[in-house]
Design a protein around this nucleic acid. Structure first.
Length: 327
DNA sequence: GGCATTTGACCCTT
DNA sequence: AAGGGTCAAATGCC
């Protein structure tokens, strides 16, 4: 069990995602009706959500069609778990022994860097490199990254980035945990739309409708305050919309530099970036959805204590699944 | 000076 | 003991 949304691949998980997205569409439509002409920002956001959701559905639909065609032709997906060296990272079960090193949820994404090799790519978060190791049997070293906000906000998200042997333009990325760092550039309270109970209710419904499929994930660790987010991320709990999305303080510079010896590094000075997906529009759509939903929550929801952060859309929209569409 | 990266050493798990 | 993950001092850049 390498990825919590592994069910998307190889079965009807894509269909489930489409169902969930359709649910979002319906809720957004209702939300729009409730907003009834007021709150231009909210209307704009709902329109965007609607558009992006539709786009996501079409992406997934066409991806499934392609997979089916490839399967019929007897082709193995280059992104299938068997082809990913890191796909078995959690097969042992991380909680066999309480003394073992803390093991966080891992998600493996293989990322293809764009053909413009000099352009860095961004996965929407800000990373700081803290180590690099030569890995036995691998031609390329593995880079270790943690969230830039680890110390300031206690964000425990980390990732490992390794160039694949077979294709230097491909990276295997293992994500450990999710970002808990919070939005740094919230819009001023005065500029936010008034709190709208109807919108709030609908957004809560929207949130409740988004669930993270976590079948097969290890049980959450003991109640460690620092890992509350992890427990939420691994339990079959409702997907919480948090402000720790790419609209957050995590959204900064590229975690990838395509320079030959410094790949995967997050240069603080790079001004342009490419997403870790071949299709920029797709990546942008996904992040827009993150952004828009977060903004809506901020606009409509009461300032309740920040719920545990989960990359809900990462879970909902399996990135391997989507990336394979462009492979 | 502050921040990020590099890299050898150390620690933990198997 | 080997391999992988993290730490922290050294170094570089802005």
């Amino acid at each position: 069990m390498a990825r919590s949304m592994g069910s998307v691949e190889g079965n009807n998980g894509g269909g489930l995602v489409v169902t969930e997205l359709s649910h979002i569409k319906e809720l957004v439509r209702q939300l729009e009706v409730h907003l009834g002409g007021s709150h231009d920002l909210c209307r704009h956001l709902t329109t965007q959500i609607f558009t992006i959701t539709e786009r996501s559905i079409s992406i997934i639909t066409s991806s499934n069609d392609r997979k089916r065609a490839a399967s019929d032709a007897g082709l193995a997906s280059p992104l299938s778990p068997a082809a990913t060296p890191t796909s078995d990272v959690t097969t042992d079960g991380p909680f066999k022994n309480a003394k073992k090193r803390k093991v966080m949820e891992k998600r493996s994404h293989r990322v293809r860097v764009g053909s413009a090799g000099d352009n860095p790519v961004d996965d929407g978060h800000s990373w700081r490199k803290y180590g690099q190791k030569e890995i036995l049997g691998a031609k390329n070293p593995r880079g270790y990254y943690r969230c830039t906000h680890r110390h300031t906000q206690g964000c425990l998200a980390t990732k490992q980035v390794q160039r694949t042997d077979e294709d230097p333009t491909l990276f295997d990325i293992i994500y450990h945990g999710d970002h808990t760092c919070v939005q740094r550039s919230l819009p001023p309270a005065a500029s936010r739309p008034e709190h709208n109970p109807d919108a709030t209710s609908l957004l809560q419904s929207l949130s409740a409708g988004l669930t993270v499929k976590t079948e097969g994930l290890p049980a959450p660790a003991a109640a460690d305050p620092a890992q509350g987010w992890s427990a939420a991320a691994t339990a079959a709990a409702p997907f919480y919309l948090s402000s720790s999305t790419p609209a957050s303080g995590c959204l900064e510079r590229s975690p990838f530099s395509a320079s030959e010896n410094n790949w995967g590094v997050s240069p603080a000075t790079s001004d342009s970036y490419l997403p870790p997906f071949d299709d920029v529009a797709e990546w942008r759509g996904r992040n827009e959805l993150h952004e828009v939903v977060s903004a809506l929550v901020l606009a409509g929801a009461p300032p309740a204590p920040a719920p545990p952060a989960v990359d809900g859309l990462d879970e909902l929209l399996d990135m391997d699944d989507i990336a394979s569409f462009f492979a």
